[in-house]
Amino acid sequence: MIFLNIEKKLHAAHGDMLLDLNLHIQQGQLVTLYGASGAGKTSTLRMLSGLFRPDKGKITVNGEVWFDSTQRINLKPQQRTIGFVFQDYALFPNMTVLQNLEFALNKHGDKNIISELIAMVELGDLQNRKPATLSGGQKQRVALARALVQQPKILLLDEPLSALDANIRSKLQDYLLRIHQRFNLTTLLISHDKAEICKLSDWVFVLDNGQLQQQGTPTDIFIDKKNQQSLQLTGKVVDIVQEKNTYTVSVLIENQVIVVNVSTNNFQNLCIGDKVRVAFEMSNPVLLGKG
């Protein structure tokens, strides 16, 4: 169980912002921090890991106090048992894949964990390579394995998959789920991808401008129950033909052009290139097959 109740004044690009959060995270859950960039997600992970000091508040993890401003307790990152996967992976360029993992092992650590992790993320063939020669997805797997060598109870991931393409992303999500379950971790993930969040997370915290705006299961947050009968998509106007009182508007959505008739009274200043929302009535959605 993680209790995190912190306040921190941040100096962001668009002025000062007060990060003021009170989060409770259940043991064993995979939790996502969701929100626009600059909302304070990365700062939250950094404060939990001890890399960044909150101004005020308290952080308790499984009954152990990691930070308490009133009692002047602030454990160093070295004293907090967490695994952290950085956005830029932070692999040590001077060490091979294997050496990166071995470096993470502490003196009395169990060496078997390294071979188990290497097998789990399928890095066997790459273990003697230097990070500079690896692809993004491979680096990501090394970073993930390395974060777990110390067998932490908490895993923090700062947008780990954002730089990867969809295929590798989906594969890495599977690794992540497997590892999360195998090591009985409490995992905090930063992600912008709703599909990814729905696939991975048990719980979502929506952050906005330093405040907790909403929390709940991914279905609660992302699925709009009122609008189950209609599907809304955003597209771009590519053509407008005017006839008396109606426009015939062509809208590009994904890669398809959809033609909609609208009354001129409702949309007087519609121009080519405008972004528009289009609602579709859904009476009977059908799954067409994979891919």
Binding site: S49, G50, L51, K76, P77, Q78, Q79, R80, I82, G83, F84, F86, Q87, D88, A90, F92, F103, A104, N106, V149, Q150
Partner: peptide, 15 residues
């Protein structure tokens, strides 16, 4: 050097 290298080592418990 990216500061994440140093931070990654600290998080691993390295002095």
């Amino acid at each position: 050097l990216p500061s994440s290298l140093k931070e990654a080592a600290y998080v691993m418990g390295k002095s």
